[in-house]
Amino acid sequence: MKKLINTAESVLEDALAGVAAAHPELAVDLAARVITRAVRPPAPKVALVSGGGSGHEPLHGGFVGPGMLDAACPGEVFTSPVPDQVLAAAEAVDSGAGVVFVVKNYTGDVMNFELAAELAAERGIEVRTVLVNDDVAVEDSTWTAGRRGTGATVAVEKIAGALAERGAPLDAVAALGERVNAASRSFAIALTGATVPAAGRPGFELAEDEIEVGVGIHGEPGRRREKLRPARELVAEVVSTILTDHHLTAGDEVIALVNGLGGTPLLELYIVFGEVAARLAEHGITVARSLVGNYVTSLDMAGFSLTLTKADAQLLELWDAPADTPALKRA
């Protein structure tokens, strides 16, 4: 393992110290492990709190700021935050208007946020939870833990965050977050595994000519292993997998996110995006807005995920609304 770390045990606290030093617009509580905005929004405002395991940067701390999140609680690498941490975040940002938890659908995240919501309710904080589950690689059935939350988290945090910033009430913000999630589908392909610092080895190892199709963002193996093919063929398969599930039809507009998993150059992500746009055009689907870059990463994993969010006038207007966060800015 070759990593820019001090010790495997101190990865999170050392990274949080760096976030604090780099971003005076954020307030980083190193003891509670909570990131909030340094300048509180005018109260009362519905607060958005998200969190999850570390290793997905800039998610979630990089999306704290006006127009998006009020607080983020990063857990250990690939490990959900603990309830005390989520509660501390909710208490720090609740203005009395209530708190929306944006939770990616993983067993641990769901349990820890559920326990935190119980504790918050005991303290008189009204909480709604938006569960993000956009990954079509997982069969959504009683036979699995349900679909994983991946790239759609960015769209949920951007669009619901914009509505909250305008003073919308708690139920409206939560309902919009759920609507964005329901309108989104994602699929990912990995060229390498991801190495958790405490484990020291990649979660899976691939030969020079192998890829994992249908991976999540935690270094776990995907649905199947295949031979590497040209980007055009891989993207065609990813787009067709999403379209089959999503029922998008000619004339629809989408917000398209081509997301790097942490170890892939932007040059390649743009090659992927070009192929995505071409395939969607063949289906008569318009890319109304696009985002290309590393937004929901999986440590050092090479590969990409594609997220398509079916757009309408309201979603596009809020997608374009101002945001000022370390990782996403809109004038």
Partner: peptide, 12 residues
């Protein structure tokens, strides 16, 4: 354990 572990194993 609930306060320190996280993941699914902490709450469980």
């Amino acid at each position: 354990l609930i306060s320190k572990v996280g993941g699914a194993s902490g709450p469980l």
